[in-house]
């Protein structure tokens, strides 16, 4: 369900860009961070085979995130306003690299990159949420995208509990980062459920 929600979020995002011929309201910085997240995490495509499903999803997430970046940077460039997308990503990249160096399952390059990608994914939404707060409102379709994207990691939580009891497996790095990631959406979800799903416009209180 988490994976499908993630997949759905990307489909919604592409649908929003295509139908409105615009990437207004979407943070380029957040989208660029996702490209970095997927490239650093899915390096194991080249040596760690899990399943056709797993490989297909990894390829899709890399390809679609690069494609969204292309759409924003070239095809719909005039519709993107960098002056409201001002979050400093350096504040995210530095700490995530440090977290990757401290918390990893083996002190080697690929494992550090994997851990870095987990932490970075947890906070990659911040430039987008920052932008949302600055503008104070959003198109409904953009909020559906964010809701699906936020639900995705939240849906992993019951899966982790299940695997803890069922398979006796726990991945502390993914769990802690996943809880942080989900936590960052709580404010957004509150407004989404109380406004957008009641048929009102997404508007933040002044």
């Amino acid at each position: 369900a988490g994976d499908i929600s993630h997949l759905a979020s990307i489909v919604i995002l592409l649908h929003k860009i295509y139908t409105s011929h615009s990437c207004r309201g979407i943070s380029f910085k957040t989208q660029a961070l996702y490209v970095l997240v997927f490239l650093t995490r899915y390096l194991d495509l080249f040596w760690h085979w899990v399943s056709l499903y797993n490989t297909a999803m990894k390829v899709f997430f890399i390809a679609s995130s690069v494609y969204v970046l292309y759409l924003m940077k070239y095809k719909y460039r005039p519709t993107h306003d960098p002056s409201i997308d001002t979050f400093k990503v350096e504040y995210l990249l530095g700490p995530c690299l440090i977290l990757g160096l401290i918390f990893n399952y083996e002190f080697k390059f690929t494992e550090i990159l994997w851990s870095f990608s987990i932490w970075l994914e947890a906070v990659a939404i911040l430039p987008q949420l920052f932008m949302l707060q600055r503008t104070g409102e959003a198109e409904a379709i953009t909020t559906h995208y964010l809701a699906a994207l936020g639900a995705y990691r939240a849906l992993y939580i019951p899966n982790w509990i299940w695997r803890y009891f069922g398979d006796n497996v726990v991945d502390p790095i993914a769990v802690v980062a996943g809880l942080v990631q989900t936590g960052l959406y709580l404010d957004f979800f509150y407004v989404y459920f109380t406004k957008v799903l009641q048929g009102q416009k997404f508007e933040l209180p002044a």
Binding site: M57, V169, A174
Partner: peptide, 10 residues
């Protein structure tokens, strides 16, 4: 725990 088992997640 076998961490490869966990890394079958996305």
């Amino acid at each position: 725990a076998d961490k490869n088992l966990v890394k079958d997640e996305l």
